[in-house]
Design a binder for these strands. Structure first.
Lengths: 204, 204, 204, 204
DNA sequence: CATGAATGAGTTTTCATTCAT
DNA sequence: TATGAATGAAAACTCATTCAT
């Protein structure tokens, strides 16, 4: 028994309860958006009283921001984990796509939430900071390989926007039934297509 | 004097007023989302009284659906207009991309609105139908050329999702300052990349 | 029919309704204080729906401030009206006391309200400004006559505090049944006592 | 922050804790009023848990009544202590004023609290009883000396209301910066003024 | 038809009180 | 006995919708 996870009456801990709230909020925000979700709804889905929410979060906005930061960081971590810094661009693209698809399949609600709440006006500075760091990393990667004549020459941001957009587009297509779920076959086809899109054409 | 454009006291017509409301709604919904926009706000921006809205639309949901259907159809029409049915796949891809970027640049609010309200729970059957017809057309196009061995082989929906997603990704990147505005140069680079992504690799 | 007092369905005007709200608020705030009064209570006593209040006032704080400013100004006006600027100090003291008691008898709730909300943290700058002007006037009066050796010498603010406090004390005593209602007899006795308190003793 | 917290660290007694709660409540109620103060706030300032409050007091109302009764009694005791029952009216007035001002200077929060919660609807019968006994004493004193032709003739309650009100007025003026703090000089001037107000005029 | 004041259910948030530990 | 997390009723405030004019 330690101060940071006191065990409660029902066997749950403080952290458990916060987790329940965050998880309920993720689900509802992903489904119905921020303004479309009422705090008591979150409370009910989390199995707590409405007032209890406010023992853990200062406001509804604080909840979205907590959810956003948590899952954006998770996504970033998923992509960064085992990233082949010393590999070639092809291997890095593979890792990036596989990691992103892996995250989207494992945490579809989180991915949906992140897409839906992207650049929302109620996100705070810290949330935007997390977002910025992801963008910066992507641009850095592209520029480095572009400069090394491995990637296609294109105005700043075009390749990054294309690749990220294409992945989101495919994942969304999966959710909405416009394509079969992300099978390994689909992933491979996608990856090859994207590689042909971004690599410098005169390269073999 | 005809039924569809009764002239009113102030010289305006029924259609004029409806137009004002739809245009105000488009702007606000694109900026602040459906739940983030109040009906009286729309009325004010449209220059009519709040109650007047309800002579033209049964509810707030009816407004958002009207806006969605109108601009989704417009987008579809833009892409279909002068479509080179008899041209080769390359020319068709060019037309598609140019038309879509053209629409996004000419009607940025409409494009933003459509992306933001994509698959929202308050969209009705008719809105979904419009969406479906767009998807069907895209898939038809892809399948035809895939079968003709012009396009890359990939599971159903992958190429369409990739291309559409990539375009949305680039346009968003422009809005959010992650890349320069959509210059002709950027469009050309994008188009070449996408063509390399979708064409059958062993084709020259 | 004029713009500033449009006649409504029930024959009432916009101003009438605002009046009802202010009057209901005065009564409740005087009785139960600011924090002790709920907005729906005000609405009910005013005979309007809770939401209607917010068509007339931006917030609960805006209501107290409107009530405060209105009645503080009225009190000031009552005291200033027909003030014998050219009379001697005795006549001025008489006028001041008579006018204040007159106000307190005619508008007991307003007087009670003003005493109860004196210097409350939710009063805004404008309310404080009104208060300041009253204090400044009182001090100016005292200093002038003190200097002319008509009034007793005392540190700044003592005589003003004493006189105002004494009046409030007597009025409160009346409310709380500690003395008979403010009969003319009581007023005369009070006035003579106060005059003996403030005049310079060696004066006859 | 309270003086009793150190004591509680080693062996805390029931009375110690009750003291802490009452002292915290006094401070907060005096500053922010009854409805403006939250029970958990009192608990925090008292250095106890919110639930603990309810082992000592049945409700928030019980706290405010306990505070009221305690300090009203204290004030009464301060005035009664060493009261010159055998002295003349002048000496008694002096004692009364000096004792009241002494209390107000020594326990400004208590004095402010008592003024602020005077006749509040949440005060119970016992609180009102304490208040009554003070009033009765004051009236008894006045009537006795009036009858002895020492004090001015005035309807029942007028002189008591005047004197008490004047004192409160002066003390408030001090709090609000309308006069210098209660210096001995100010007290003397006040006392002389009040004596001239209440004594029978034809008496020297 | 157009208006916009009025409505009241719904929103987010607070807080006096309880109760399992 | 003391705790403080949990509660849920009630607070202030918003807004989609109605309806008398």
């Amino acid at each position: 028994m330690n101060i940071h996870s006191l065990v409660m009456a029902d066997g749950s801990t403080r952290e458990d309860k916060k987790e329940c709230i965050l998880s309920a909020a993720l689900e509802l925000f992903a489904e119905k958006g921020f303004h479309g979700t009422a705090v008591p709804e979150i409370a009910q889905k989390a199995g707590v009283a409405a007032g209890t929410i406010y023992r853990y979060f200062a406001s509804k906005e604080a909840i979205v921001n907590a959810v956003y930061q948590r899952h954006k960081s998770q996504l970033l971590a998923s992509v960064m984990a085992d990233f082949p810094y010393d590999g070639n661009a092809r291997a890095q693209v593979h890792h990036f796509i596989a990691a992103t698809f892996g995250f989207a399949k494992k945490h579809p609600l989180a991915f949906k939430f992140l897409e839906l709440h992207h650049h929302a006006p109620y996100l705070d500075d810290k949330s935007r900071e997390v977002e910025q760091s992801v963008v910066a990393m992507a641009n850095g990667f592209v520029e480095q390989h572009e400069h090394n004549k491995v990637l296609r020459k294109a105005p700043q941001g075009v390749l990054a926007g294309l690749v990220w957009g294409a992945m989101v587009g495919l994942i969304r297509a999966g959710w909405e039934g416009r394509c079969t779920e992300l099978t390994p076959k689909a992933e491979i086809a996608f990856e090859e297509a994207i590689w042909d899109a971004v690599r410098r054409p005169d390269t073999t």
